[in-house]
Amino acid sequence: MLKAVEIKNLSVKYPDVKALDDVSFEVNEGDFLGIIGPNGAGKSTLFASMLNLYTDYEGTIKFFGQDIRKSKHYLKQIGYVPQKPIFEKNFPVTVKDVVRMGLQSESDADRIDEILQQLWIHELGNRRIGELSGGQQQRVFIAKALVHKPKLLILDEPVTGIDQQSIELFYSILRELNSKQNITIIWSSHDLDAVNKLANHVACLNRTLFFHGESEDFFSNDDLVKQYSEASMQEHMHHH
């Protein structure tokens, strides 16, 4: 099977803390991987390293067989949806303007209407992005991440601060992208139930990787789930 992502011995040391310690895992093309872990587990560092935002790591990261230190071409083949898209509320861009930013070439402009329709935001195309609700904005940013037909979609806890109805719609869109369009998905989430329902693979991260495998194996193993829940609980109490 073709590998979408191969991560080998990834370590990241910040001055006062080791954010990632010898993390290795692979993602096959067509997989839907849920990455779970408590706050401060290194999920953001892992994503930043994968996305060319942080380059001071040890180890190797390959996308579609290519070392990302050597070629940045892989960035054109992935779509990224951030946790909460940050932009100036009054920024004068319409929904279509934002989605167009994701296009690699102007000649694919027909894709904009197509993807807006697919995500049920066609009627919002000419509205300013800052006027939309959080759930609608999230769909616009998914549209932007998908408009250039990526092979891989990376999502960083993308449902923070969004209403339940939008979350359900969002999950059904993800399921369809993965099963019908065969897009590989890497998705970090706090929501264990949702990961259980959607992902076919799970990676459990807490600075080191303490589980990676089929999602059924994780969720049928009560010890692992308990261990994970305790780790998040401890982290939670630590934060308070």
């Binding site: 996305l51 060319n52 935002l53 940045k72 071409h73 960035l75 054109k76 992935i78 990224y80 951030p82 898209p85 940050i86 932009f87 920024f91 861009v93 303007d97 934002v98 167009r100 930013m101 994701g102 296009l103 102007e106």
Partner: peptide, 18 residues
């Protein structure tokens, strides 16, 4: 135009788009 607008709108996402 795309590069200028995108990096003005959101620097991090522009970087991720290459």
């Amino acid at each position: 135009f795309r590069e200028l607008l995108y990096s003005t709108f959101n620097e991090e996402q522009a970087k991720v788009s290459g």
